[in-house]
Computed example of a mutant assay.
Amino acid sequence: MRFKLGNENNRKYLAIIPTVILSPLLYIGIIMIWIFSVSYYPKIDFNKQEWNENKEERYKMSNDIIKSEILIGKTKEEVIELLGDDFYFYDESHIAYDLGFVPGLFNIDPDVLDIYFEKGKVTKVGQHET
């Protein structure tokens, strides 16, 4: 048994209505999935060995370093002992470590981990795109 919807004259219009409604939703869904997949990256806990071996993916650990405040109160020597000596020296109160390229839609510049000192101790840790 065949199911008949409408008559011969309006059947093509009944097919166009779902197409007009569903096509944009499908395209928007595909674009959103693509944006989320390009922007996603795993955030992992800080690991000294991984930090030193994989410099291009340090950004995965930067969130843990900032949120856990593991550097707050440490001296510059303690920071260098933990993170290594491959940092940029801005001045006595500011150094930065390369984090690599954070995945993102329009991210074309690498990020750095900024470490700020006051009276020889870390007071603030942040991250920015160069």
Results as ranks from 00 to 15, higher is better:
S37R: 09
K74F: 01
E81M: 06
N54H: 06
V122F: 01
I21V: 15
L71Q: 05
R58Q: 06
D64V: 00
W34K: 10
Y88F: 09
R58S: 07
P103V: 01
N47W: 08
Y27S: 10
K67R: 08
M32V: 02
S68C: 05
N107F: 08
I115R: 02
D114W: 00
D109N: 14
K67M: 10
Y41S: 03
K12Y: 03
L105N: 13
Y41L: 10
Y88C: 04
S23Q: 12
E8W: 04
T130W: 14
N63F: 07
E118K: 13
E129V: 11
L99W: 00
Y40V: 00
L22D: 05
D85V: 01
G100Y: 06
D86A: 04
L105H: 10
G100P: 05
Y90K: 05
M1N: 12
S23H: 09
L25T: 05
N107A: 09
K121C: 04
E81D: 15
Y41N: 11
E57C: 08
N52F: 11
M1T: 09
P18L: 11
P42D: 14
F101I: 12
F101W: 08
I70M: 15
N63S: 14
R58F: 03
I28Q: 11
W51I: 01
D91M: 01
G73P: 03
Y116C: 05
K74G: 04
L99M: 06
F101M: 14
F106L: 12
D85S: 15
V20T: 05
D109K: 15
K43L: 09
L71T: 01
I28T: 12
V112S: 09
Y13T: 02
I16G: 09
Y40L: 06
I72C: 06
D111T: 03
Q127K: 13
I115K: 02
F101Q: 13
E53W: 03
D114F: 01
V38E: 10
L83Y: 02
D114M: 02
L22G: 10
L22C: 11
E69A: 03
I35F: 14
S93D: 11
I17S: 13
N10Q: 10
G120Q: 02
F36D: 15
A96L: 06
E81Y: 13
N63W: 12
